[in-house]
Design a protein around this nucleic acid. Sequence first.
DNA 1: AGTTTAACCGAACGTATGTGCGACGAGGTG
DNA 2: CACCTCGTCGCACATACGTTCGGTTAAACT
Lengths: 242, 242
Amino acid sequence: MANTESKRTSRRDPNKLSERQKKILVFIEQFLKRNGYPPTIREIGEAVQIASTSVVNYNLNKLVNGSYLERSPDVSRGLRLLKNLNNEPVEIEYTHEIRVIEASNVTPVPMLGKIAAGMPLMLPENHSFYPDPDEIVEVPSPLLGRYANSDNIYALRVQGDSMVDALVGDRDIIVVQRQETAENGDMVAVLLEDSNETTLKYFYREGKLIRLQPANTTMDPILVDARRVKIQGRVLAVLRQL
Amino acid sequence: MANTESKRTSRRDPNKLSERQKKILVFIEQFLKRNGYPPTIREIGEAVQIASTSVVNYNLNKLVNGSYLERSPDVSRGLRLLKNLNNEPVEIEYTHEIRVIEASNVTPVPMLGKIAAGMPLMLPENHSFYPDPDEIVEVPSPLLGRYANSDNIYALRVQGDSMVDALVGDRDIIVVQRQETAENGDMVAVLLEDSNETTLKYFYREGKLIRLQPANTTMDPILVDARRVKIQGRVLAVLRQL
DNA sequence: AGTTTAACCGAACGTATGTGCGACGAGGTG
DNA sequence: CACCTCGTCGCACATACGTTCGGTTAAACT
């Protein structure tokens, strides 16, 4: 079968690092930063896709030869990083300087409830306080773009499969900015007054009509009278946990 | 006389550190600096004149309570210094890049590249592992569930509309945990060896066959020979910015 | 005195983890 | 082609190391 795609580098470099060795080196650095202690041989193997511990050991010793790291024999996790890939010295030092950690770039967004087909979603008017959110969802700020600090952002949990044409499934979380207007190309939550249904669609104004385009490009848009749709908010992001 | 040689500190302080605990803390810090990896319980005991490993363990847990350090269960040398004696934060700092060890509600995930239809995704293959630090996506940890601290998590940007049946669209970000096995109901990224294509589907084993079920419940599952599919990872989350 | 609790000891237990060895395919070389 | 080295695999093995549990001691409280 196609399993024999041996990725053997087969490089005959004198003392250059192989791909695997580079990966190992970077992994060790990352692991160290993440955990505060070095990884085991097996952990390295798992991360770098090496099946045999002896191979990791083999490559580790190569790295020792290149003085990228030191090892303490018979010591579990007995690794010491000397320099990283770019030959930059890597030293672990403890600073006793209080560093204010810039608040990680997440925006707390109140989870206001569920949104299901056939139910208009009632977002609170422009209140500067949140009613009583079931919970707060922390959304990475970059996902919200320039609205990250806006006041009218809410999270809703989708219930049911009524929005698959917007590529939104059951249990997904949508982050909505409350607004009653929209610009072309925006993904909006709109209430269709004829069917009294809320759907998520891309918004395009076409004269007196509004074209609502499903995110799934294989599906057809619908055209509705502008007076029969009520924009409820703009969808900023979708989060899905599987 | 030498009547007060009782080694028992007999302090009845609520949450102040005992002499022994202080010594342990200082020793860990020094050991870390000298060796680049944390000491074992026995090494601590020897240094601080404690005969029994259980006593070291006991005091270590005290230090954890005071949030001086963190421990990883069943992990040898699984210590992580949080602050030192003076309550000063202790951070592991690499000369060229600052990293704060602090548990926050986001998990940094390296963005490894793009995933498009017809291309098998090469997880931590090629490119020197994590290219640049800017390419880190911060994912809310709850979204990753119990995998939040795993080391094999990667983010990929979806290119194209080939995965609409998984409710994943163009430009979406999927967060993948690399693994080669899956359990029923998992959303997995699989390589179909017949078409050499990677798709996202729900995974169900059915004897010698594997049923790959699209997330869009209106679509039909496909059945394939278990030997013709290669699981590349489990999809943990999907992020979409609109 | 009896009881509880913090701090400690010792030893046994199990698993986490490094090491060593035999084998194998792909190149390279004489 | 025989023969080597390099990178790889799988596996057994010994030990490094965290965990647990039964005891002990002294101080504090009933």
